[in-house]
Amino acid sequence: MIYYKTEAEIALMRESALLVSKTLAHIAGLLKPGITTLSLDKVIGEFIRDHQAEPTFLNYKGYPFNSCISVNDVVVHGFPDKNELQEGDIISVDIGTYKNGFHGDHAYTFAIGNPGEDVMKLIRVTKESLYKGIEKAIAGNRIGDIAYAIQEHTEKKHGYGVVRELVGHGLGKMLHEDPQVPNYGRRGTGQVLREGLVLAIEPMINMGKKDVYTEEDGWTVRTVDHKPSVHFEHDVCVRKGKADILSDYSIIEAAEKNNPNLFTKA
């Protein structure tokens, strides 16, 4: 079942999405070598509650943390822990908020120090692919148009591995709604996009092979070759002519550039 949102509901969803963006921007200012992801998770939970919302991920299907924090070869769903972040690590922070009856859900990948040219290129290309997909999120197109745009830019143009087991999704009163939004596929296939459909579009791109595995904790997903993986995600409303991005990377990027511990040059 696909749920199309009214203008009033989209306005509420924008509030939830922007709170995720503000939380990610706050975290961007704190990242540095030596900090633990568990301490970041605590800050995330407090920041969301201080803004009259709830962390979506906490206790979602048994997930035990406020956020998913995935380091280096962890694709998604990484458990925050007491290990200290190191110079050269890349870290994907994925956050969900629940406010006014609707969810926000998006992610951003940061580089702590300089991880090297190859990894920075992977970060840049993955982020570019997110916007390539968003360009196709307009009324009259199909899900396959979004999927193809992401795959073409990452896998076909640059030879990266596009994860198959994990996909984007619809978003609304539930965290995961129909339809699924793969990061691979054929143009002109899949669900027709209509105005009012809100999607979480989220390329998960590996430097090496596309293959992944899930650890014994039932959540943490890693690349099989242990090469780095990058994850970006925006909340997007389908419109006529041009997609409406409900989340805001500009405040995250500003905080990222103001933190001398983060590397932003591609």
Rank of each mutant, 00 (worst) to 15 (best):
G188S: 09
P179N: 03
T220V: 10
L30E: 13
G196L: 04
G172K: 09
G133M: 04
K61Q: 14
D225Y: 09
F263H: 15
I112Y: 11
G96I: 12
E84I: 04
A17H: 04
V230E: 04
H158T: 04
E215N: 07
Q180S: 11
A243I: 11
V238S: 07
G161W: 13
V71D: 00
E253K: 15
E54F: 13
N66A: 06
Y160G: 03
I2W: 07
E46I: 13
E195K: 15
S39I: 00
G113R: 08
I35H: 11
Y148F: 15
K257F: 10
H51G: 03
G62A: 07
H26V: 01
Y63K: 09
K173F: 10
P203W: 08
L30D: 01
V163L: 03
G159H: 11
K173S: 13
D244C: 03
L199E: 02
I10C: 01
E216W: 10
L31S: 02
E155S: 13
D145P: 02
I95D: 01
K265S: 12
A147I: 02
Q180M: 06
T36I: 06
K240L: 07
A107L: 01
P33F: 04
G168E: 02
D41H: 10
G78T: 01
K132E: 14
L19I: 03
A107Q: 05
V93H: 10
G188T: 05
K121I: 01
R187C: 01
P179I: 00
G116I: 01
V74W: 09
R124V: 00
T37R: 08
L58E: 02
H153L: 11
I143P: 00
R222D: 04
D145T: 09
D248A: 10
L197A: 03
N100F: 08
Q86G: 03
W219P: 03
M1E: 11
L246E: 02
G208K: 06
L197K: 08
Y213H: 14
E233G: 10
V119D: 02
T37S: 12
Q52L: 06
G140A: 12
V236T: 12
M120A: 08
E202N: 14
H103L: 08
L171F: 11
V75G: 09
R194G: 06
K240F: 07
R194L: 07
A266H: 08
T36N: 02
I146F: 10
N206L: 13
A25M: 11
S67M: 10
S129F: 11
K32N: 10
G62E: 07
V224H: 04
P179S: 03
G208D: 00
G241F: 12
H176D: 00
E155K: 15
A107V: 02
T264Y: 14
E253H: 07
T23F: 05
